[in-house]
Design a protein around this nucleic acid. Structure first.
Length: 730
DNA sequence: ATAGGGTTAG
């Protein structure tokens, strides 16, 4: 390109002016990226010197070049130069205003135009649609007197971009009825609409027409068909369409690579990537992003290194993906190295890169530097706002998160979800629920993440009423089939004591992963349905392809312990490593101690506790002590209590357990002395708290302070009940 | 008017 420009400068004096103008115009048309625009700029200066810059043909090309590269300053300058407006310049002017988002001015200029061609109408409609002004766009669309395939296609694709695929489909049918034939771009847009609508039959109808009109061999159309089948889960069709293509480009290969990622076969994806006939930086960025998104952050980083070694120049996408991978690895130092590099090559202000950097610093617990990057971004979009809000949320800085959330100019559902997550992080479950209500009221569409968070809050509150409300909303929005939401529902109902509902949800789930199985098995065990819990575990082993994990085995031990199946529990425990390949952790050991103590096998329990490979948890000793109480083994009780107080020296939790056990045995003197000891050592016990929900209001009761407004009355009634009960026995 | 890739929540 540089050479072309220099030859142009040298020939300009010799060749005729007309040819020079034509050549300049073509060159300006080709200035499509940042680097080439600098040449275009140089040519512009040259043209000014030659007095040719206001030559209409040239000027329009210059204007379009600046428009395409969004050089608002130059556009402004150029438009000032024009005195007599012709139609093309006028169109450019409207376009410029649309580009700057000044919709009002664009409409005014359009309305004032003395004459309009189809480009004027189409540009206005698509510009309005790009900014989400659907009604306004349709106002002009119906008045457009030209309505060739251009206008139809522009409007259809604009509607699809606004998520209005159904209306796009209607318009497409109207277009066919009016006798206008679709072209390749219409087809790719309308296939995208079919993907959005998830309608296979509709898509097949479109394919019939594609073949009839003769676009089935078009690379772009075929690519969009491969994507269509892929998104609708028809992998066979996707593969067949791909194999049938005579001409394949990078896009085709990238799409089929995507298909294997979708099917969870990253190795096959990698194989295809390695064997691709051609690659570009888009392909690289696709594979890096895919590995990063599917939890293979290390591999993503390795691919990035490989890309650099292969002398490909990473683009913004690659940087943002690799930074995001490093963020999930919490690899601060390598991330900072890339940050420095990105700043050096002038990509520091890119929103994508910036958002990932914000995420990186926040995931590594450094919200201060995250904020610094955030503040340095000149053009902020929702994503980087969300990154920062969720960064604060992640680190428990709820006040900061809320403050920033309120300043987001155009919130989306992720913004709300981030704020809800922020409340969950600091255990403010009631408030999380309030935020959810605010979200619904503001008209924001909740999604599956919203429900999985909100249901988690309900589970922690053990509030059946709120949980049922959230469940109803999830049903209404159609997210109850999602595996995340289903899991949260199973857990919520179990935690709220409605185990029947929990089972219903569980049984209806079409696909189950280890998390749901665990939630259900745990729910049953904790609600006293130990046998059912164990049955379910056996079913899980028999019928499902998911291997048991640590947590599910903990629930199994818990269940065994609670229904007295000590030997069964022990055999599970002993086979953990061998059969399931899971090394028992402290909590598993504690569970076994609990199991033995509950069934009175105290000596075994003591021996077990002394022989375990870890230092026993305070809970384990407490379980043994409580077993000693039940079975009246005073000597062992004494030994255990001593051990527990000894442990309490280093672990404050021990004191609380000790005092609880004394309390349950009615040894109030010992309770007092333990509490005294805790006070001396400055150990604060967070107060026990209980609550009930009445008429949509939660009433809290704390173990120490009488904080409830009506506590006097409540205690008074309680005393009344007590004396009534007493009188029954006398 | 334009298919394929990128950042955020659970």
């Amino acid at each position: 390109m540089r050479n072309t420009f220099s030859t142009l400068f040298s020939i300009s004096s010799r060749k005729s002016l007309k040819a020079f103008i034509r050549k300049s115009a073509t060159l300006l048309e080709n200035c499509t990226n940042e680097r080439l625009i600098r040449h275009g700029n140089a040519l512009h200066c040259h043209l000014i010197k030659m007095g040719l810059s206001s030559q209409k043909y040239i000027a329009v090309k210059l204007l379009i070049m600046y428009l395409d590269s969004r050089k608002s300053f130059e556009i402004d300058q150029m438009l000032k130069e024009f005195k007599g407006f012709n139609l093309v310049v006028h169109n450019c002017l409207v376009n410029a205003n649309l580009l700057w988002g000044d919709v009002v001015n664009a409409r005014r200029l359009f309305d004032e135009m003395p004459e309009r061609n189809e480009v004027s109408w189409t540009a206005l409609v698509s510009g309005l649609l790009k900014h989400g002004y659907v009604d306004e766009a349709m106002f002009y669309f119906v008045r457009n007197p030209f309505l060739s395939v251009f206008s139809w296609t522009a409007t259809i694709s604009g509607l699809v971009q606004n998520g209005l695929s159904f209306r796009a489909m209607e318009l497409y049918k109207k277009m066919l009825r009016s006798g206008v034939l679709p072209n390749d771009i219409t087809f790719t847009s309308i296939i995208k609409a079919c993907i959005e609508l998830g309608d296979l039959e509709l898509g097949k109808g479109v394919i019939a027409l594609i073949i009839k009109v003769g676009f089935e061999d078009d690379v772009c159309v075929s690519n969009s068909l491969v994507t269509f089948f892929l998104r609708l889960g028809e992998m066979d069709y996707a593969r067949r369409t791909f194999d049938r293509m005579e001409e394949k480009d990078v896009v085709s290969w990238t799409t089929i690579l995507d298909m294997h990622v979708e099917m969870g076969d990253l190795r096959e994806a990698r194989r295809i990537f390695d064997e691709m006939p051609e690659r570009n930086e888009v392909t690289w960025s696709a594979i890096i992003a895919r590995f990063s998104q599917s939890g293979n952050a290390e591999e993503a980083v390795r691919l990035f290194q490989e890309m650099v070694q292969d002398r490909f120049k990473p683009n913004e996408s690659c940087y943002s993906s690799v930074i995001s991978a490093l963020a999930s690895l919490e690899a601060l130092q390598p991330g900072m190295n890339i940050h420095a590099h990105v700043l050096k090559i002038g990509m520091g202000t890119n929103v994508f890169v910036g958002s990932s950097l914000v995420d990186l610093y926040c995931k590594c617990g450094n919200t201060k530097d995250g904020r610094l990057v955030f503040d340095s971004l000149p053009e902020k979009n929702v994503v980087c706002w969300n990154s920062m809000v969720s960064g604060y949320s992640l680190n428990g800085q709820l006040a900061e998160a809320t403050k920033l959330f309120n300043r987001i100019p155009q919130k989306n559902n992720i913004s709300w979800n981030s704020l809800i997550a922020g409340h969950l992080a600091v255990d403010k479950f009631d408030e999380a629920f309030e935020v959810f209500n605010g979200m619904i009221l503001s008209g924001e569409q909740p999604n599956k993440s919203t429900f999985s968070s909100v249901l988690k809050a309900c589970a922690s509150l053990a509030s059946l009423e709120k949980g049922e409300y959230a469940h109803a909303k999830a049903l209404k929005f159609g997210f109850h089939h999602d595996i995340f939401v289903g899991t949260a529902l199973v857990d919520m109902y179990a935690k709220s004591g409605s185990i029947k509902s929990s089972q219903k949800i569980f049984n209806r789930m079409p696909t189950k992963n280890e998390v749901v199985w665990t939630a259900m098995i745990q729910g049953l065990a904790e609600n006293g349905f130990a046998e059912e819990s164990l049955h379910l575990f056996e079913e899980m082993e028999r019928n499902s392809s998911v291997p048991p994990n640590e947590l599910v085995l903990l629930s199994v031990l818990f269940a065994c312990s609670h229904c007295g199946l000590v030997d069964k529990g022990l055999s599970y425990f002993n086979s953990m490593e061998e059969v399931y390949g899971i090394k028992p952790n402290e909590r598993h050991y504690t569970s076994v101690v609990d199991m033995l103590s509950r069934s009175g096998r105290l000596c075994e329990a003591e021996e077990f506790i002394r022989n375990m490979p870890y230092e026993a948890e305070a809970n384990a000793w407490a379980a043994l002590l409580s077993g000693c109480k039940t079975f009246g083994n005073e000597t062992l009780a004494k030994r255990t209590a001593e051990k527990l107080s000894e442990l309490a020296e280093t672990k404050p939790g021990g004191y609380i357990l000790l005092s609880n056990i004394y309390a349950s045995g009615g040894r109030w003197v010992d309770v007092m002395s333990t509490r005294e000891l805790m006070n001396q050592k400055g150990i604060k016990k967070s107060g026990g708290c209980s609550w009930i929900e009445l008429r949509n209001r939660v009433h809290l009761f704390y173990s120490q302070d009488e904080t409830h407004t009506q506590s006097t009355e409540i205690y008074w009634v309680l005393q009344l009940f007590n004396s009534e009960i007493q009188s029954l026995f006398t």
